[in-house]
Amino acid sequence: MLSALRPEIKNLDDKIGLAVERFLKSELAYRGVAVSGGNYESGGEHGECDLVIETPETVIFAEVKKKPLTRKAKAGSDTALMLDLAGSLLAAQAQAGWHEVRFRRDGHLNLDDKGTTTFIELSNRGIERVAISLLDYGGFQDRIILKQFLESTIGAKFMVDDERLKNKFEKINDALTDIHTQLVQLHPGESKINQPFIHCWFISVPQFLILLDDVTDSLSFKNALWSSRHITTGSSDFYFDLSYMRRLKNK
């Protein structure tokens, strides 16, 4: 559908991205979750947060990317899969990673959303980084697979023979370089980092909406997200894991 509509609607992709952000903000607000976002300046660097959710113990940075898992990737094309993951997971985690670096460095961020200013302070809270895709990526959104993928690509560089794809793969390498640089800045002087990406997530808009089923405020949203943070069933299925943990809680 998107491919057919792009020639007809100018800047379609940007409009979709903004519409998804507004939709998620409205869904969160409807359930009593305080959410902010906007542009900020930090040490001469510019950043833009899509969604920021605060609880007394945690600040959650969520970045929305509409890049879908394409048919070529589903059919087993390694090149297509890497491009899809780069346009969703890696781009969002690199963006959220810079938010974390600057937030920890300054101790605060001053977000400007079209004239509405929100001042957020770190105050010794933890930080979670959530990449949100428009549609499902299947098993790639499993936390164990996500952890292994991010850890295995630290310091990696991807090459491609097709000249038409070299610029796209340079963007992949740029995102990986950003994530590696962020890791060094967040853990200065540490030769071995235990679970460096334990606070990173990759979920889809449909999965995000399922999380909101019983949410009534910011803390209950955090608790819903945490329900599958430290367990795995081996299913590589977010919906199954969430349902399983809800059944255990009800029992």
Results as ranks from 00 to 15, higher is better:
residue 52 V to R: 12
residue 32 G to W: 11
residue 90 L to H: 01
residue 143 R to L: 06
residue 171 K to C: 06
residue 49 C to F: 04
residue 5 L to M: 14
residue 148 Q to K: 09
residue 250 N to V: 07
residue 169 F to N: 01
residue 142 D to N: 12
residue 119 F to E: 13
residue 245 M to Q: 15
residue 244 Y to N: 11
residue 73 A to Q: 08
residue 239 Y to G: 02
residue 211 L to V: 01
residue 184 V to G: 11
residue 152 S to L: 12
residue 196 P to C: 02
residue 32 G to Q: 03
residue 248 L to H: 08
residue 183 L to C: 12
residue 169 F to G: 00
residue 78 D to M: 08
residue 237 D to M: 10
residue 43 G to K: 11
residue 97 G to A: 07
residue 231 I to D: 04
residue 130 V to D: 09
residue 183 L to R: 04
residue 24 L to D: 00
residue 100 E to V: 15
residue 99 H to F: 14
residue 231 I to P: 02
residue 36 S to F: 09
residue 2 L to M: 10
residue 141 Q to H: 00
residue 160 V to W: 05
residue 78 D to K: 15
residue 48 E to N: 15
residue 202 F to E: 00
residue 186 L to P: 04
residue 92 A to R: 01
residue 182 Q to N: 13
residue 1 M to V: 12
residue 81 L to G: 05
residue 62 A to L: 06
residue 138 G to C: 00
residue 164 R to L: 03
residue 146 L to V: 01
residue 84 D to Y: 05
residue 75 A to S: 13
residue 122 L to W: 13
residue 61 F to G: 08
residue 98 W to M: 15
residue 49 C to N: 14
residue 224 A to E: 11
residue 3 S to F: 06
residue 101 V to A: 13
residue 151 E to R: 00
residue 65 K to S: 01
residue 33 V to D: 00
residue 215 V to T: 09
residue 14 D to W: 02
residue 208 F to Q: 05
residue 203 I to G: 12
residue 21 E to T: 00
residue 158 F to Q: 05
residue 225 L to Y: 12
residue 128 E to M: 10
residue 191 S to I: 10
residue 27 E to K: 08
residue 10 K to P: 10
residue 23 F to I: 07
residue 104 R to T: 12
residue 69 L to V: 02
residue 231 I to W: 05
residue 128 E to I: 04
residue 173 N to V: 04
residue 168 K to N: 01
residue 225 L to G: 01
residue 248 L to Y: 14
residue 164 R to I: 00
residue 101 V to G: 11
residue 108 H to E: 15
residue 203 I to E: 10
residue 21 E to N: 04
residue 127 I to Y: 10
residue 251 K to H: 07
residue 228 S to A: 04
residue 244 Y to F: 15
residue 149 F to K: 07
residue 129 R to Q: 15
residue 1 M to D: 13
residue 121 E to K: 11
residue 18 L to N: 01
residue 144 I to S: 14
residue 246 R to H: 08
residue 155 G to R: 04
residue 11 N to V: 10
residue 131 A to K: 00
residue 37 G to Q: 00
residue 236 S to Y: 15
residue 216 T to E: 09
residue 90 L to K: 01
residue 150 L to Y: 03
residue 41 E to N: 12
residue 194 N to G: 09
residue 85 L to S: 06
residue 129 R to L: 15
residue 216 T to Y: 10
residue 185 Q to E: 14
residue 226 W to T: 15
